Computed example of a mutant assay.
Amino acid sequence: MADAQDPRPTPPEQPDDSECCRSGCDPCIFDLYQQELEEYRLKLKEWEARQAG
């Protein structure tokens, strides 16, 4: 069970296709989402290790 002092990380919200302006922004909203998703996965892995220990 998750500890209130160490809550499970929450995944980033995936942007809707309509949120992209299609003008070639750098970074694109989907690039930022991928970065956030990678950070979330790392934090989740660390959290799971703490919960198992």
Rank of each mutant, 00 (worst) to 15 (best):
F30T: 05
K43S: 09
Q5A: 15
L42A: 08
E46A: 12
R8D: 03
A4M: 13
E39F: 03
G24D: 04
Q34W: 01
E46R: 14
P7H: 10
D17I: 09
E46G: 05
L42G: 01
P7K: 12
Q14I: 01
L42S: 07
E38M: 11
R8E: 13
C28F: 04
E13A: 14
A49V: 02
E36I: 01
F30M: 12
D16F: 01
S18G: 02
A2G: 11
A49G: 00
Q14Y: 01
L42C: 02
D6G: 03
D3L: 14
E19K: 09
L42Y: 04
E36P: 00
W47I: 08
Y33Q: 12
P12Q: 08
P27K: 08
D17Y: 09
P7I: 09
E48M: 06
L44W: 01
P7V: 07
P7L: 11
I29E: 02
T10A: 13
P12W: 05
R8N: 04
R8A: 10
K43N: 09
E36F: 02
G24V: 03
Q14S: 00
P9H: 13
E46C: 07
Q5K: 15
Q51E: 09
E19L: 08
C28A: 05
F30E: 06
Q51S: 06
Y33P: 05
C21Q: 04
G53W: 07
D3G: 08
E36R: 14
S18F: 03
E46F: 04
D3P: 08
R50L: 09
E19R: 10
L32T: 12
C25P: 08
C20F: 03
C21R: 07
D6E: 09
L37A: 08
R8Q: 13
E38W: 03
P11M: 11
Q34H: 08
D31S: 05
E38F: 09
M1W: 04
D31G: 01
P11T: 09
P12F: 06
Q35L: 10
D6I: 07
E13Y: 11
E13D: 11
C20N: 03
C20Y: 02
A4Q: 12
G24Y: 05
K45A: 11
D17W: 11
P11R: 14
D3Y: 14
K45P: 00
C25E: 12
C20K: 03
D26R: 15
L44C: 01
E19S: 12
L42I: 02
L37M: 13
D17R: 15
A4T: 10
D6T: 04
C25Y: 10
A2Q: 14
S18M: 06
T10R: 15
S18P: 00
P15G: 04
Q34K: 13
W47T: 05
Q14P: 01
R41E: 14
P9N: 13
D17C: 06
L42Q: 09
Y40F: 07
P7C: 08
G24T: 06
E48P: 00
Q34R: 11
A52N: 06
Q14H: 01
T10L: 15
M1L: 01
A49M: 07
D16P: 01
Y40M: 02
E46W: 06
C21N: 05
A2I: 11
C20I: 00
E13H: 12
A49Q: 13
K45N: 04
Q5T: 15
Q14N: 00
